[in-house]
Write a protein that binds this DNA or RNA. Structure first.
Lengths: 146, 146
DNA sequence: GAGTTTGTTGCAAATGATTCTCAAATGAAA
DNA sequence: TTTCATTTGAGAATCATTTGCAACAAACTC
């Protein structure tokens, strides 16, 4: 069993829940996806295995709580997620124009945030730094038109 | 005319739009509100003046673009906003349990972010740093129960 | 001033992501 | 195999947000 599957199983057991085939499939799909994904995109990947969209929506919060995925940006009214690999967390730069998402390392800020958390006695589950604006491509074209 | 009203008017004119009574009312309401607000809460404040919720929804993106308000956290499926006063931007700490929102200064991180933006040639419109987890109250009670 | 153009609004209806309901399926445990 | 709690797919329901539309309004044109 893969690393993150073990982790998920443990998490579920702690809550008296089971690692069912559907859940395992959803987890696997979340980890094969190498970009951001939303509920529907993930479902597309596994609907052939007869896993319903409802189950995807039910499982996503579990993966979130288990710390295996994180909610990143919200685009077009849809929540997007990405898996966590033990990689350092990163910031998301979202272009308002072309909706490109650029990722950068967050470690430079991490310590400042952790320090603040200690002061607040806040138990961090997720950090999400999103910066919206215009990417270099759209910044240039905005100068031309408009 | 108040400062931010001038700013909004200028912004609108640049787009060939007008500062109508409804829009002015919405702007004013957004600035009297001293906490976060969502579309409905803002509408409650001004519906007596016969401004429809639809118009609120239509105006919010304009205020956003004009840089007068910012979208902060999303709670209970609703987008929340807050006005910008030229104050330094702040981080939002959202308790998953009691849904309290704590705000802290963001200036410590600002320079690191700006630096990164320069490297990416990214034109920043909004920075949003949201940290979810448990506030000190809920952290303690989580230890007891569950 | 009458007519035209363009932006605006409230209302009601539409949209669409997410959640819920429910009856059937599953699975661990006794 | 009976029990009992959990899970599931399918479809219905929910609810924030958008949109279409007809009536309005302000700015221009002639």
């Amino acid at each position: 069993m893969i690393d993150h599957e073990v982790q998920f199983k443990r998490f579920l057991q702690k809550q008296g829940l089971k690692l069912t085939p559907s859940r395992a499939r959803i987890l696997e799909a979340a980890f094969t996806m190498h970009e951001h994904f939303d509920a529907e995109k993930l479902h597309d990947l596994i609907k052939a295995d007869n896993v319903s969209l409802a189950t995807v929506y039910r499982t996503l919060p579990l993966l979130l709580e288990a710390g295996l995925i994180s909610r990143t940006v919200r685009i077009g009214g849809r929540d997007r997620f990405e898996h966590i690999l033990g990689h350092p967390r990163h910031a998301h730069w979202l272009c308002e124009n072309c909706q490109a998402v650029i990722e950068t390392d967050l470690s430079a800020l991490q310590s400042a945030i952790t320090k603040e958390a200690k002061a607040l006695k806040f138990d961090i589950q997720q950090i999400s730094l999103n910066i919206t604006g215009l990417c270099w491509k759209c910044k240039d074209s905005a100068n031309d038109s408009q």
